[in-house]
Amino acid sequence: MKNEKPVILVTNDDGITAPGIRSLMHVMKELGHVVVVAPDSPQSGMGHAVTIAKPLRLDKVEVYKGFEMYQSSGTPVDCVKLAVNKVLHRKPDLCVSGINHGANSSINVIYSGTMSAAVEGAIEGIPSIGFSLCDYSQNADFSPCEPYVRSIVKAVLKNGLPKGSLLNVNFPKAPDFKGLKVCRQAVAKYEEEFDERIDPHGRKYYWMTGKFALYDKGEDTDEWALDNGYVSVVPVQFDMTAYNSIPFLNNIDFNVQTK
């Protein structure tokens, strides 16, 4: 029926009780029929991991009244797969992930469980968006994000997204925002260090530490937008082919000898 509300799948990587998902759920309730399938515990940094070596649990819960909610023992990607195959038995009209506690801009998109859940939605052909706030505090204020979430989701529901793409939306840590900018992903990486320690049994173990290194000075990047008080919107694709490298490789003689 044309008058039916769109079915919106809500998920995250911070866990089903995280404040960020609650904020996202309440905005989505204005726009469609909300179904929540999220991890039962924090899954940050899981990337696109799936569970294959142990069984998955999926339980209906009532963390917040008035919502259809399920928690899973699996990863964020598992949650999207379970939602499509075992909860909805169909593809939702939209998949939204977040709102994450902490940035998923630049290279973070590779490691992010939040974004990987949205990527999985896009792989399924579902218009998908990942939302993140650059504030790691459990007391983070998500209210400034909500008008932007509402507007972005309404626009995607109306216009759709190009095939094979999704949106990575990041909010700066600020009481209000200057506006929205469509950006490219900044060139950056983490420069890791490993703090070596000894456990009570005399065995070595390591804590990964390090710092975020931004190499990109462009003013069209997500990092520039966030540093200057803007909401960044980056179109992301799961086709990781480096198309610009194909002519280069075709000009190389690999000199394969089979005998």
Results as ranks from 00 to 15, higher is better:
S106H: 14
Y136K: 11
K81L: 05
K81T: 11
E196N: 15
S232Q: 10
A38W: 09
H101V: 03
D220K: 13
D222Y: 06
F254K: 01
N251S: 09
K189D: 15
L133T: 11
V236Q: 12
G164W: 00
M25Q: 03
L24N: 00
D40N: 14
S137G: 05
R184F: 08
Y206R: 14
I152L: 02
K2V: 15
E192T: 11
E62M: 02
P175E: 15
A18V: 00
K5D: 10
T221P: 00
T221C: 04
N12E: 08
W224V: 01
V119Y: 08
A18E: 02
R57H: 15
Q43H: 06
F238V: 14
S137E: 03
L166T: 00
T241V: 09
L58M: 15
I129A: 11
K2P: 09
P235R: 03
K211P: 00
C145K: 04
N139Y: 11
L82M: 13
C95G: 12
E120R: 11
V149I: 15
F238G: 10
P19Y: 02
W224R: 00
P6F: 07
K91E: 13
V63C: 09
P42G: 07
P19L: 07
K178N: 07
D253M: 12
E124D: 12
A140E: 04
G20W: 00
P147W: 07
F212I: 00
L133V: 09
G121Q: 07
S105I: 05
L249E: 05
G45E: 05
V37D: 12
P175A: 13
E30L: 06
E219I: 14
K181D: 10
M115F: 12
G179V: 06
N255P: 01
S245R: 13
L249F: 14
I52R: 15
N170Q: 02
L161D: 05
E193H: 06
N244F: 08
P247R: 04
V182C: 02
C134L: 06
G74F: 08
K2C: 07
I246C: 04
K189R: 10
G47W: 07
A38Q: 08
D253H: 13
D78Q: 00
T221L: 02
